[in-house]
């Protein structure tokens, strides 16, 4: 059982490491790396289930009977290229966040946002008290 399921367990471990990086780290670039690890673990999962014992690469050749399953290969082939494009989009957002906030640490961005919000609510409060006092 250990050997039969080893691939899937590694996939789960990698997936959880990626997941952990995404939820526990505050740095946005690190989060994206975590997301990439998560993504790659799914690729490994698909490719693992496509493998057939004693099979070869799915390129037809005379004298070979057993081939690995080509369908997951196709799905993952396109997913890798789509993955890098979406990662690039995420990184582009990170760059813009850095330019807007001066930092890519989640906590810092949050505190800056809170400050702005506080300023707004305070402004609104003082306005409303003024309007109440005026009549």
């Amino acid at each position: 059982m250990l050997i039969g399921l080893y691939n899937y367990w590694v996939v789960v471990v990698l997936m959880m490491i990626g997941f952990y990086i995404v939820i526990a780290h505050g740095n946005l670039v690190k989060k994206i790396v975590g997301l990439t690890i998560f993504q790659t673990s799914v690729f490994i999962f698909y490719i693992s289930i496509a493998k057939v014992e004693g099979g070869t690469a799915p390129i037809l050749h005379a004298g070979i009977e057993v081939y690995s399953n080509p369908l997951p290969h196709v799905l993952i082939l396109t997913a890798i290229v789509v993955g890098i494009s979406t990662t690039a989009l995420g990184l582009a957002l990170t760059v813009r966040i850095k330019e807007a906030y001066g930092s890519i640490e989640e906590s810092e961005i949050q505190s800056q946002d809170n400050q702005i919000q506080d300023a707004h609510t305070q402004g609104a409060l003082s306005q409303s008290t003024e309007s109440r006092e005026s009549p």
Partner: peptide, 11 residues
Amino acid sequence: AMDAVDVAFTE
């Protein structure tokens, strides 16, 4: 190693 040569290329 998993026979997915096309995918390995891309990766």
